[in-house]
Design a protein around this nucleic acid. Structure first.
Lengths: 362, 362
DNA sequence: TTCCATGTTGATAACGTTCTCTCCCATCAG
DNA sequence: CTGATGGGAGAGAACGTTATCAACATGGAA
């Protein structure tokens, strides 16, 4: 066993300072009223003994842990690591700590993580729910007293704040941008898992926005609506997924897209890893971007302007999304009973060099 | 105030089950001996009431929090987010949680983070110390009973385990690779902060490896030794830094390098963000890689094979470094008194297309 | 039958804080 | 001189667990 050296406690400090435990506690904790003289002697004694408050004991009595549980898919994904950075900075300023859990989009892991966080009595949770998350589970958590804020995604029918972007509008504008460049055959590479993928395949992409809380669904709907508004009939075979959000998935999806009889002249990958896959596939097919295919990606990753060609993207203020999520959570922790707010931050279309006019036929 | 609904505790469960509190506690906690019948009734009662153990109270008495503090420069940096992923996975398997703190290479933030983690009574710390960290501070933490494992970097004279790579050897081999391709004028782009940068500027780069625990120092030494072994005199003006680890810093450093009278024909950026900067600078200068300049980077980021040209890099097993660090920490937490181990994992030189023969003169 | 080992149980003491309450005493207005 | 007021201090409870210890069954061996 680790023979943790005897750690001084408040009674020790009190003894050293020659005051009662209660007085020492007040002096150290900065609450109640203590004479200047006593305060001084306690401070001195604490320094001599090297006293450090025991946060666990404090949490025990105050009922607050000053810890926030953050539940997301994968911290290695740049989107999430930026979000966590935003959360962590805001948390630090508020005296809160961030505890991390990765779900890998696995509902079981998500539930397990949330359960343990609740047992740990975190002050609140920031969750990026996986596709299948049902609202009743999280509702139970909230009703039981742990505030929850959703990040990036939403859950229909759940009374919880959420912070993200307007996915429909972001995709709508990206698509309009491609339309304006002259493209009419525009493909979408999404990461949507295969089990819900079927939902995408309704004629005319009707109802994709109803895919539960999925950013992918909302973005696909935005894409569809931009096409419709331009008088172009959405094609089901232009929306493809390799089965997940890994680069290989996007490579496969892109190749599938480009193997069509009438391949698209522009591609819209729905996140940054997928963009990487699209670029790789284009390269592997011996095509040139933007000469042969134009690309507009999502998320302004660190490499987007260094890649050739520099990638035109829809940039999300990811750190700020994280920071805002934490702010909302804090105000819930402080007892705000306001009705749920769904906050959407502005996206920016960052024009670089991956979009050109469509390759003229034949 | 958040009116947290009355949360059931062990006495509540005991009452419901009609047993003593002690028995209920044993049944729920899975310790001591309880009859099958009692166990059953307690489980039933717990289910009825929706009992959830209070981890804070448990920590209070056991003295263990099952939480690991992870202190690193910046979670947004891909190296660290991969390391955290490795740590988190291993931690999950061991029933531990990960609490995060970013230092931004700021010694004050690092100390503050460690202090608060100790007050939180974390079971142990994984620290990637900033350049200026003095050993006495961490030594105090360890002696006081909180085990510490260093990640990626070391601190000379500190009795703590560390996990990372053999930086000297990795840089040595990367340099040898460039030498083998025919390069004799090889530049290094490092992120070393300006205040220690001076140390790099000794004639012949003598003693760079003594820069306190710096990966940059060790890598530069490996580079130097490869040159010396090939009979090439290291040039002080070939080792440059833009003052930090941001991309702009590397852009500036690279331009400085290429503006020399005899510019290098190959560049060795010492981390992945710096590689991005080097590539960007090469591009901005209207040069082509590898035709005009060859590049070997550090760390196999997700974009390295998608960039043009695909980047040849020294790959570190980053997730594994994190996982091993956690393993070492766990064994210390379990009381291992073994003398400190410095574990170095193998790196791999991943050959892609960013290295070619040097451009023949004029 | 007696005795000891073993398994089960309950009462109660920790753990290190913060919170509640009471008491003391000095001050000051009437 | 009296009574109200309030700052300062101390004793002890409370938080929800786990740990300790004694008490009590039960059963098999002597």
């Amino acid at each position: 066993m680790t023979a943790r050296r005897e750690i001084p406690t408040i009674p020790d400090v009190a003894r050293e300072a020659g005051v009662s435990m209660a007085t020492a506690a007040r002096a150290l904790g900065g609450y109640g009223s203590v004479s200047a003289a006593a305060k001084e002697r306690v401070a001195q004694a604490a320094k001599t003994l090297g006293y450090r408050p025991n946060v666990v004991a404090r949490s025990m009595i105050t009922g607050r842990t000053n810890a926030i549980g953050v539940v997301l898919a994968d911290i290695e994904n740049a989107f999430f690591s930026s979000a966590v950075r935003g959360i962590a900075d805001a948390a630090r300023a508020a005296g809160q700590h961030v505890i991390l859990a990765n779900t890998d989009e696995d509902i079981e892991k998500e539930h397990a993580a949330i359960r343990v966080f609740v047992e740990r009595r975190v002050d609140g949770l920031i969750v990026c729910p996986t596709d299948g998350t049902d609202r009743t589970y999280l509702r139970g958590i909230i009703e039981q007293g742990t505030p929850v804020v959703l990040l990036d995604r939403r859950i229909r029918g759940l009374r919880a704040d959420s912070v993200g972007i307007d996915n429909h509008r972001a995709a709508y504008e990206a698509t309009r941008y491609l339309l304006a460049a002259g493209h009419e055959r525009i493909g979408v590479v999404t990461g949507t898992a295969s089990d819900v993928e079927a939902a995408l395949h309704r004629p005319g992409l009707v109802g994709v926005e109803n895919l539960v809380g999925m950013t992918g669904g909302e973005r696909t709907a935005g894409y569809r609506d931009a096409l419709l508004q331009a008088g172009i009939e959405p094609r089901v075979d232009y929306v493809v997924s390799g089965g997940g959000y890994r680069r290989e998935d996007a490579v496969a999806a892109t190749k599938e897209l480009m193997a069509l009889e009438e391949p698209p002249t522009a591609i819209l990958p729905l996140d940054s890893i997928l963009s990487l896959g699209v670029l790789q596939a284009v390269r592997e097919l011996g095509l040139r971007c933007p000469r042969d295919v134009s690309v507009v990606g999502f998320d302004d990753a660190e490499w987007t302007e260094t890649v050739t060609p520099p990638l035109t993207v829809v940039a999300q203020p990811v750190q700020e999304i994280g920071a805002r999520a934490l702010q909302r959570l804090l105000s819930r922790i402080d007892g705000s009973r306001q009705r749920p707010v769904h906050e959407t931050l502005e996206t920016t279309l960052v024009e670089r060099e991956s979009v050109g006019p469509p390759l003229s036929e034949g």
